[in-house]
Computed example of a mutant assay.
Amino acid sequence: MTTADPSPAPAGTAAARSTDRVAALRPAYRADLADGTDRFFHPRRTDCPWCSSTALRPRLHTTDLLQHKPGRFTLDTCEGCGHTFQNPRLNDEGLEFYYRDFYDGLGEQRLGKTFAGRATVHRNQARSVLPHSPAPRTWLDVGTGHGHFCATAREVFPGAAFDGVDLSQGVELAERAGRLRRGLRGLFPELAPGLAGQYDVVSMLHYLEHTTDPARELASARQVLRPGGLLLVEVPDPRSRFARLLGRWWLPWLQPQHLHLAPAANLRHRLEALGFAVVAEQHGEAHDPIDLLAAGWLLLDHLAPREDAPWHPDGPPGPLRRTLRPALLLAGAPLLIVAMLLDRLLAPIAGRTGHSNAYRLLARRTP
């Protein structure tokens, strides 16, 4: 066990409050992990959840590189259709465990600041709808989090009313903050029947890959759209060259949260089968130039001593760990700067060279 710091943070400081919160959560996490992590998974599949082919091959073995919660995760790829999926997949208990304190709880403030700083990305996503629906009246953002996309999209579409759906308490905070007209907390397929035919646009921006049944989510989107309404989907591209070059350090793998990563052709065909007509497909426009920077950060964070967290078995960090971590991250700063510059240099040609880390589909609901 790491010894406690003989000079703890003064009572009442932010550091002390954080330490107290972590300490209060530690017994529950230890109870959750007492029997290991095997209980968090479904049995391994032997067929593809997208096309039912049994021609599967391992794509990636990794750990939780963001929260560093215990567990190992495998992604398999279908040789038949190219669909990549977590196998074995987390069950409901596992999803609750690994999502806990990521978007809310301990992680709420940090993630809220991250999403709030992505206004340029959100504005570009919203503008992709303009040529096909210049004046939507109602818009539903599925997986809205804290509603930051909607707050920015309102600048592009000032006449639209924005609602949001999410499982986390962030959607309720977004409604209170005025970023959403209405925040709906729950599973989208369960909420969809009560929202049937109410929306001109539905957006699913880096949401579908988190879901257990993407086809059901897409069918629910069609249900809540008016005839002629638009569905905007943006997801990571598992065929990105960066996915192969960076391996487990490619951020969009995002294990254990990302359960399904579908190639563009798969998603396009599924939308058409559900009664959508795809009106736009974008790759370079959807690229987020952070691959090398994120990979550098994940590597440095992996090598550095852990921050205090209630799921770490060795307890709160002592003075040596608290000193070594910032020192290592500071030493790696030049690496991160070079990575950021390379990301920006490659960004204009990412789509043409196959390095785009995401793609965007815009589909119209047909009668």
Rank of each mutant, 00 (worst) to 15 (best):
T2V: 14
T3S: 11
D5A: 04
S7Q: 14
A11E: 15
R17P: 08
S18Q: 14
D20C: 02
A23G: 06
A28I: 03
R30Q: 14
A31W: 05
D35W: 10
C48H: 06
W50H: 07
W50S: 09
W50Y: 02
R57Y: 03
G71K: 11
F73H: 13
F73S: 12
D76T: 10
E79I: 06
G82L: 14
F85L: 04
N87S: 07
P88C: 12
R89W: 10
N91A: 01
D92R: 13
Y99L: 10
Y99M: 08
R100F: 04
D101I: 05
Y103V: 00
L111K: 03
G112C: 06
T114K: 10
V121E: 13
R123Y: 13
Q125V: 03
R127W: 05
V129H: 00
P136H: 04
R137A: 15
T138R: 09
T138N: 05
T138M: 00
D141P: 02
F149P: 02
A151M: 06
E155C: 05
V156F: 01
A160Q: 12
G164E: 14
V171P: 02
R181T: 13
R185T: 03
L191T: 07
L191C: 03
G194S: 15
V202E: 03
L208I: 04
L208N: 10
H210P: 15
T211G: 06
A215Q: 12
S220K: 09
V233K: 10
R244T: 05
L245V: 06
Q255E: 01
A264Q: 08
A264C: 08
R268Y: 10
H269Y: 05
E272L: 08
A273D: 00
V278N: 10
E281D: 09
A286C: 11
D288T: 13
A294N: 08
L299E: 13
H302F: 13
L303K: 13
A304K: 04
A309V: 14
A309L: 11
H312V: 01
L328N: 08
L329H: 14
L342K: 11
R344Y: 13
L345F: 02
L346G: 09
P348H: 10
I349Q: 02
R360K: 03
L361Q: 10
R364D: 00
